[in-house]
Write a protein that binds this DNA or RNA. Structure first.
Lengths: 328, 328
DNA sequence: TATATACATGTAATCGATTACATTTATCAT
DNA sequence: ATGATAAATGTAATCGATTACATGTATATA
């Protein structure tokens, strides 16, 4: 019984006689033998792991996406390394190092804010075809990506507020250079224009998806001479920060101001008031990204169709209590 | 210039002449050489990675703990594998397999609910000294752990409510078999006894740390003949679920019922009303657990002091708006 | 039955580092 | 200056799998 036979029993069982295969497996069971992944990885030049880059692990928005990914990778014994892009500078380790050190075979990036410099590090090393973007993406590149229909989400939000009777609708955006910010803002503006709603510059308030930026937006709104009657927020977290500060200042949601969020994280249903928001199918986003990546890093890639077009996942309006007809 | 010299330049630079070291590093820089981790791992029988077991990645409570860990491991180029204990059954991969397949050197477990069966798999393979528990731990074992001072947190919460004038204090617990549930419940009961507060059986409400269990607790409370004037919740999430449902039923927090949580997750400050809660220093928990684990898996372990006593991290009362003097 | 062909298994090289041991070179004391 | 000792470097085995190639065995064909 040679080592080669054992190896084949594990990776290409169909090459062996039923009989020998049985013998091998019996021996494996009785000895408790386990393949050494390090040795296999060395020989096959694979890492059996993928890297997931998260902009902020602290944001509950990402959890379900990760769950969707684990679900897929779990099936193919690929392990998942998770890194927070915030920590990069501090740790001194570049993300491309994970590849160069043969620690991962591919990467899913949830952060569209990677610098051109970093992206070049990947392309310079011929790694661009082992990267999938999910949720966010990089503007003006054609790296494969999975994303929600952000523009449609924004339109749904505005439409809903319009249907409730709102005309003066504000928007708290995401961070300035973010692709989601852009997609949602443009969707919102387009719908507002289509419905011929009034426009005021200071009804577009710059935020950054965070609770704190919601608070700041609320302060801006409270100080306004002509307040909007409704606010569409670029994320649920922003909506929470906003509502919290509005309440603290005696403005009631939805009686005085209606609020709509974006994401539908678990907590949205349990906020006071329960948040009307746009649901992203986060688990599906994670699953699709994982599936795409597995195809990329498959040693014998199935003829990849032109994968330049992003995979788009549909969104959905979830009506709860934070948006109601305007007073008066 | 032999491969041995190069290898030494990387792992034991002090063995080389200043001159040769320079030559080696110069060559490394000019050729862009990188060590192959798989080869190193194979030879040194180390994985250069650790596994972190999280009970529920979706719970924002864990994020900062993970951040604290990454901070430590990032410095020592150990990579961090994160797995959700919920997914285990589904993926079919046992956690002990990560060790047996030489994929990780150690493990931090945030889930005290591991079955005796699973724990035995670790001890049977002599792996018990490569495991650190954090936040949660396993009752009746002396595996090293890092935890918050849960009993003290519970006492602080009850004391605070007492100081505000509350006498009828209820508690929503965590899941039945959870060690945190026990520690917090006992702390709460002890303090209630010390202050000679009234006791009613149905003021101890079974929960499971989740938003949904908070909602259910609220329904129970609303239906009570003798309602408590304050509720101490075993987690912030429970508090949110509770407050959301109280509000939906016309009970105001804190005017009608005061609420205190446990954890102080980021959102607590932005809830309506802002949640009075017990802060756990989650980042510190993560850092300490990581530090402990690194000592365990160090190839030349520093004489480990008796590490049976758990490392305890202090907690702190954060006063916000959800608890106020009772009406009347 | 002999020969060609397919199939199963064995042999040994290989992946890229680490490290025990051997060898060379430098340092020191006498 | 010489031998003893220490320090630096080189040689080659090793970690545990995979796999090209060689060999052996069964099946089919003439």
């Amino acid at each position: 019984m040679s080592t080669a036979t054992v190896s084949r029993a594990l990776s290409n069982p169909e090459l062996l006689t039923e009989a020998t295969r049985e013998v091998v497996f019996a021996a494996i069971r009785s000895t408790g033998y386990r393949v050494n992944k390090a040795a296999r990885n060395l020989r096959t030049r694979q890492a059996g792991a993928v890297l997931v880059l998260v902009p902020n692990l602290g944001n509950p928005f990402f959890s379900q996406i990760l769950a969707g990914m684990s679900e897929c990778f779990g099936d193919s014994d690929t392990s998942v390394l998770i890194a927070d892009t915030k920590d990069q500078a501090q740790s001194g380790k570049l993300f491309v190092d994970y590849f160069l050190d043969s620690q991962v075979d591919g990467m899913i990036c949830l952060d569209g804010g990677l610098s051109g410099h970093e992206l070049r590090q990947f392309s310079d090393n011929g790694l661009s075809d082992r990267i999938i973007f999910a949720c966010e993406w990089v503007h003006d590149t054609c790296l494969p990506s999975v994303r929600s229909d952000n523009a449609r989400g924004a339109r749904l939000a505005v439409q809903h507020l319009f249907d409730l009777g709102h005309r003066k609708i504000a928007h708290v955006t995401g961070p300035q250079e973010n692709v989601l910010t852009h997609a949602r803002r443009e969707g919102m503006l387009a719908e507002r224009a289509r419905l011929e709603l009034p426009v005021k510059d200071d009804w577009i308030i710059r935020g950054d998806f965070s609770l704190e930026s919601g608070r700041q937006a609320a302060e801006r709104i409270i100080a306004m001479e002509h307040r909007p009657t409704a606010v569409f927020c670029a994320s649920d977290q922003v909506a929470f920060g906003l509502m919290s500060t509005l309440s603290a200042n005696g403005l009631r949601v939805p009686e005085d101001i209606s609020v709509v969020g974006f994401d539908d994280i678990e907590l949205s249903e349990y906020y006071v008031p329960a948040l009307t928001t746009i649901r992203q199918d986060r688990r599906a986003l994670g699953r699709k990204a994982a599936t795409l990546l597995m195809e990329c890093i498959d040693p014998e890639p199935v003829a990849l169709a032109e994968r330049t077009a992003p995979v788009v996942v549909d969104v959905e309006l979830v009506v709860r209590q934070s948006a109601a007809p305007p007073a008066g």
